[in-house]
Deep mutational scan, measured.
Amino acid sequence: LKKGSQVEALFSYEATQPEDLEFQEGDIILVLSKVNEEWLEGECKGKVGIFPKVFVEDC
Rank of each mutant, 00 (worst) to 15 (best):
D27H: 06
L40C: 04
D58P: 14
C59I: 13
Q17T: 14
F55K: 04
W39L: 01
C44K: 04
T16Y: 10
E37M: 05
E8W: 15
K3P: 14
I50C: 07
E22G: 09
E38K: 03
Q17E: 05
Q17I: 07
Q6T: 14
V48T: 12
E43D: 06
P52W: 00
D20G: 11
Q17M: 09
I28N: 13
D58Y: 04
A15Y: 03
V48C: 07
D20Q: 13
I50S: 06
E38F: 11
E41N: 03
G42F: 05
E25F: 00
A9E: 08
L21Q: 04
K45M: 07
D20C: 12
K3D: 07
G26I: 01
S33H: 04
D27P: 01
G4D: 12
F55D: 07
V35P: 10
I29D: 07
G26A: 06
G42A: 11
E25P: 01
A9R: 03
L32A: 09
I28E: 12
F55Q: 01
I50A: 10
W39Y: 08
V54F: 10
C59P: 13
V56Y: 04
E22M: 01
Y13M: 14
E25G: 10
F11S: 08
K53W: 01
L30W: 05
E19D: 05
V35K: 12
E25T: 13
Q17V: 03
G49E: 03
K53D: 04
E14I: 08
A15V: 01
E38D: 12
Q24Y: 06
E38R: 00
A15C: 08
K53L: 02
K47M: 00
F55N: 05
Q24E: 15
A9F: 10
V7G: 03
N36V: 03
E41V: 12
E22C: 03
S5K: 14
V54K: 15
Y13K: 08
S12L: 11
W39P: 04
D27M: 07
F51M: 12
Q6H: 15
G4K: 10
V7C: 00
E8G: 11
S12E: 00
S5W: 05
D58T: 13
I50W: 00
G46M: 04
D20W: 02
F23W: 01
L10M: 13
S12G: 07
E37V: 13
V31C: 07
K53C: 01
G46H: 01
E22D: 04
P18Q: 01
L32V: 09
V54D: 13
L21T: 07
E57Y: 10
E37G: 09
S5I: 09
K34R: 06
Q24L: 05
I29N: 11
L10D: 00
S5G: 00
L21H: 06
K34Y: 04
F11I: 02
P18C: 03
L21G: 07
C44I: 02
P52A: 08
K2D: 14
D20I: 07
Q6Y: 15
V35W: 12
P52V: 04
S12F: 07
T16C: 07
E43H: 08
K53V: 05
E57T: 15
S12C: 04
D58G: 15
G46N: 14
G49D: 06
E41H: 03
K47I: 03
W39M: 13
E38L: 03
I29H: 04
W39R: 01
E37F: 02
C59F: 12
L30R: 15
F55C: 15
K53M: 05
I50N: 01
L30G: 10
K47R: 11
K53Q: 01
V54Q: 14
F23Q: 13
K2Y: 11
K2I: 03
E38H: 08
F11T: 08
L30C: 11
C59L: 11
K47Q: 01
N36K: 13
K34H: 13
I50P: 13
E37L: 03
F51N: 04
E57H: 11
V56R: 03
A15F: 04
P52Y: 02
P18V: 03
E8D: 07
K53G: 12
E38V: 06
I28K: 15
Q24N: 12
L32C: 07
K34D: 12
K3Y: 06
I28C: 05
V31L: 13
S33K: 14
C44Y: 06
F55G: 06
I28Q: 13
E25H: 15
E43V: 03
L21C: 04
Q17W: 02
L1T: 03
V56H: 03
Q24C: 10
G49N: 02
K3F: 11
A9L: 06
V35Q: 08
G26V: 07
P18R: 10
F55M: 13
E41C: 13
E38C: 02
E14C: 09
E43R: 05
K47D: 01
E38M: 09
E43P: 01
E22S: 14
E37Y: 08
E37W: 09
V35E: 00
K47G: 05
K45H: 14
F11A: 15
P18Y: 05
E57G: 12
E41F: 14
V7D: 00
S33D: 15
Q6E: 10
K3S: 06
K47W: 07
L10N: 10
G42I: 06
D27V: 00
E19V: 06
I29K: 08
D20E: 15
V7I: 01
F11H: 06
G4H: 02
Y13R: 15
I29F: 02
K2H: 14
K3L: 08
I50Y: 10
E8Y: 14
G4N: 07
C59Y: 10
E37P: 01
A15S: 13
K53N: 07
D20V: 04
P52F: 06
V54A: 15
G26Y: 00
E19G: 15
C59Q: 07
E14K: 14
S33Q: 11
S12I: 12
Q17H: 11
K34M: 08
E22T: 09
C59R: 10
L21N: 05
V31A: 03
D27Y: 04
E14F: 09
Y13L: 04
F51L: 02
K45C: 10
K34A: 08
A9Q: 00
E25I: 03
C44Q: 02
V56M: 01
F23R: 10
F55A: 13
C59V: 15
L32T: 14
D27S: 03
E25S: 09
P18A: 09
L32F: 11
V56K: 03
Q17Y: 11
Q24D: 14
V48N: 08
F23Y: 05
Q17R: 14
V7K: 00
E8L: 15
P18L: 01
A9T: 06
D27R: 08
S12V: 01
F55V: 14
F55E: 01
K47A: 00
K45D: 13
V35G: 04
G49Q: 04
K34I: 15
G46K: 02
S12T: 11
E22H: 10
I28Y: 05
L40K: 00
F23T: 02
K34S: 07
E22A: 13
V48I: 11
E14A: 13
W39E: 09
V31F: 08
G26R: 06
E41Y: 15
F51C: 09
A15Q: 00
L40Y: 15
Y13F: 07
K3Q: 03
V35D: 04
A9Y: 00
K53F: 01
L30Y: 13
D58L: 05
A15H: 00
A9G: 06
Q17G: 15
L21I: 10
P18W: 02
Q6F: 15
S12A: 11
G49I: 07
F55W: 05
V35C: 06
K34N: 09
E8M: 15
F51W: 02
F55R: 05
E8F: 15
V31R: 04
Q6N: 01
E25M: 09
G46D: 02
A15D: 02
I29G: 08
V48Y: 10
L40H: 02
C44H: 01
V54R: 15
F23K: 12
I29S: 07
C44A: 09
Q6W: 14
S33P: 05
D58I: 09
G26F: 11
P18K: 04
S5P: 01
T16W: 03
G4C: 07
L32R: 15
V31N: 11
L32K: 14
E41T: 05
K45V: 02
F11W: 07
E14R: 13
K47P: 01
C59N: 09
I28P: 13
K45S: 03
S33V: 11
